[in-house]
């Protein structure tokens, strides 16, 4: 944007503010990771202790006693599969809305309006639907019953499609039409055009949608809590096993939370490159 030479004092102010923002964003997570290494005696004490003899007991407790890694793998499986469904179905639908104006905006509006219904009023019907599906043959075969991954995958796909479609429509509309028309003139079928020309160009935008969908699936609590019991509970439900009659075991909770953040963080860092290019989708247009 503006490349005007900037007064040095002004730029130090800028970096001071950036530092403040980074501190505000990172401090709670830093303190959480720090607490995950604290022995129980050093956690609930006033004043809070910065220096202590670190221990891995909390991680041992979370991983061995409470089998927390199983919750992380459950969440990973459910979130990744849901994200794949959302991205695939979302991209197809978004391309149709972006290019062919299907439904003239009304279907788009309906899709977003499904997000406006509070999840709590929907959770009991879902519970009953998945209970009944789970009892049928296909249900068992496709693992769609209660306390089965299918129930969560379908719910998460349902709840993230609206956001994904709206985001993808704006990405697709930034791809110039001429590229497609020339490909069609070369005799490619519509599907080939979509696969060969449009999707690669929109890939960065799709990556961004995938990241945010994964984040939303990863953070979901209510459906995971109602639709699963034990074998397929996710991270947000698994944290409950650290609530005891002696209160919340802050050490293991911090360890579990840190374990839960890692996969997400690694994924986002890996996708960082795509995110930058994705969100700068306009580059093609410029």
């Amino acid at each position: 944007m503006l490349q005007r030479p900037v007064h040095p004092a002004f730029s130090t102010l800028r970096y001071a503010l950036i530092l403040l923002v980074v501190l505000f964003a990172a401090f709670p997570i830093f303190w959480m990771i720090l607490t995950s290494f604290k022995p129980p005696g050093d956690i609930m004490v006033s004043p809070p202790r910065l220096f202590f003899s670190p221990t891995l007991d909390n991680y041992v407790h979370a991983i061995v006693d409470k089998d927390f890694l199983r919750y992380v793998t459950n969440t990973l499986i459910v979130s990744v599969i849901s994200t794949v469904f959302v991205v695939v179905l979302g991209s197809l639908a978004a391309y149709s809305f972006a290019r062919y104006n299907t439904g003239d905006g009304h279907i788009l509006f309906f899709i977003l309006s499904t997000k406006m219904f509070p999840a709590i009023a929907v959770v009991l019907p879902y519970f009953l639907i998945f209970r009944d599906i789970g009892r049928t043959g296909i249900g068992q075969f496709l693992q769609i019953g209660l306390d089965k991954p299918g129930a969560l995958i379908i719910s998460y796909t349902m709840f993230n499609l609206p956001f994904a479609i709206w985001l993808l429509v704006s990405f697709f509309q930034d791809i110039p039409r001429e590229l497609e028309d020339s490909a069609r003139l070369d005799g490619l079928s519509r599907l080939k055009v979509l696969r060969k020309v449009v999707l690669p160009l929109a890939a960065p935008g799709i990556a961004v949608t995938a990241i945010f969908t994964l984040i939303f699936c990863w953070n979901e609590f209510l459906f995971a809590y109602i639709l699963t019991r034990k074998t397929w509970s996710t991270v947000t439900v698994g944290v409950e096993s650290f609530f005891t009659l002696q209160g919340i075991l802050w050490g293991p909770v911090a360890a579990a939370a840190t374990l839960a953040v890692l996969p997400m963080l690694l994924f986002v860092l890996a996708m960082q490159r795509w995110m930058v290019r994705g969100l700068t989708f306009g580059a093609v247009r410029g």
């Binding site: 709670p28 939370a257 960082q272």
Partner: peptide, 19 residues
């Protein structure tokens, strides 16, 4: 900075909210 900014998002409200 961008990857640090994504940190708060990468954590579930049900987990970090507890913290």
């Amino acid at each position: 900075v961008r990857s640090i900014l994504i940190l708060p998002l990468a954590t579930a409200p049900a987990v970090t909210g507890l913290f």
